[in-house]
Nucleic acid binder design. Structure first.
Lengths: 210, 210
DNA sequence: TATCTTATCGACACTATTGTTTATAAATAC
DNA sequence: GTATTTATAAACAATAGTGTCGATAAGATA
């Protein structure tokens, strides 16, 4: 509004990496605001302050942008979980922070919805699979350790613990995804209030994981 | 191809209820084949053997058809579960058939995907809520009974059992929904093969529900 | 039989979204 | 300073999917 600000804003030329990051962030904002059905490139472009053809230039297609966003999210999520696991001395099962973090990111931030949306559209989500599997391996190792810790004096065979760890991870992941999508609806039907459907349920769930 | 069959098939005029049922069934077929993203009224119309404007006539809009389909599915699912619960003498926790039925309907028939799709589009799914809540109440009662049975000689307070039953139902529902959507993807990442991700996991899950 | 209702159809119109093309300007290299 | 690259933009084209309209015919009612 100032006189000096009246200088017409010229074109901003970003590096590809910067542009992609900017657009992904705008998409993330849009996702949280209106859900995955609002994820159309014109809207995202408006938030990012670019035109929709710029997005197409960097991502190839609208679908590819959504896939990139989902992959980006999964990777950040796993990374985040690993950091929480590494941070706490007592991870499982006394400490519920890891589990809460999973729910927080997937449910509360709308990422489960994005993930579901992307998958329902038949996207492959294969890119970066090696990275993700490596991250999962680390998480798996942490859970195995937690299982043995929870067993106390009892000796747990490696194979048994590893298998159980995979099941636990699968359970947590599917539950968080389902919670993120159908949680509010189910809670209403079943008769759980806000607190019960989130904090109470998550505590109850965490307590009986091991 | 026969000469007699050459009689031009006249218009078939159905009752509204019949027409709706026919269309819903076609939509269900299409859903299982290609997932919710293929649920477009022209495709459904082709399967049902009617034109897409007939669908619009009976359901009002394409979105309303999807909502009707999802509601129809939820109601049939709950009804089905109740029937399984009533049928077996020993329901929970020895018998896993109820749980397996939930996964079967939600995951294997693609209904979790439909449900998620409908919810992600922001549909309300409020119609028939009273009916659904009544069904849920019955299921809840069955689960409470199972909890007490599982406790054996130990006395379980009504309040405690009822609360736990709600959590269990919530857990099963969210898990099945998440499994139906992200199951295959997660299984691949975690390293579970087909059998482990379905039968084995479901058995393991059922065994530790109570 | 005559009349009325409405389920069905076919063709068309509308809109939202994606993708394409051509031009320009901002960095970078020489 | 000149040339090259390419990120950005604006206008245009294409498409898919939904919804509308008028006409027709199958039953229902009298």
């Amino acid at each position: 509004m100032t006189a000096t600000a009246a200088t017409k804003p010229k074109r901003i030329r970003r590096s590809p990496a910067e542009a992609r990051a900017l657009i992904l962030k705008a998409a993330q904002t849009r996702l949280k605001a209106v859900g995955p059905e609002g994820l159309q490139i014109k809207e995202i472009a408006a938030i990012a302050g670019v035109t929709h053809s710029t997005i197409l230039h960097h991502f190839g297609s609208a679908e590819d942008l959504r896939v990139a966003l989902a992959e980006n999210m999964v990777e950040k999520l796993l990374d985040d979980i690993l950091r929480v696991m590494d941070a706490g001395e007592t991870v499982f099962p006394e400490d519920h922070s890891v589990l809460f973090r999973v729910f927080e990111v997937l449910t509360d931030d709308g990422n489960a919805r994005l993930l579901a949306w992307t998958m329902l559209r038949g996207a492959d989500l294969r890119a970066g699979e090696d990275t993700l599997m490596a991250l999962f391996d680390k998480i798996h190792a942490g859970v195995v350790q937690a299982i043995k810790a929870a067993a106390g004096d009892m000796v747990v065979k490696d194979e048994v613990a590893e298998r159980q760890a995979r099941f636990i991870i699968y359970l947590v992941a599917t539950t968080a995804v389902g919670d993120g999508i159908a949680g509010p609806y189910l809670a209403r039907l079943i008769g759980l209030d806000e607190t019960e459907a989130t904090k109470d349920f998550r505590d109850w769930f965490a307590a009986r994981l091991f």
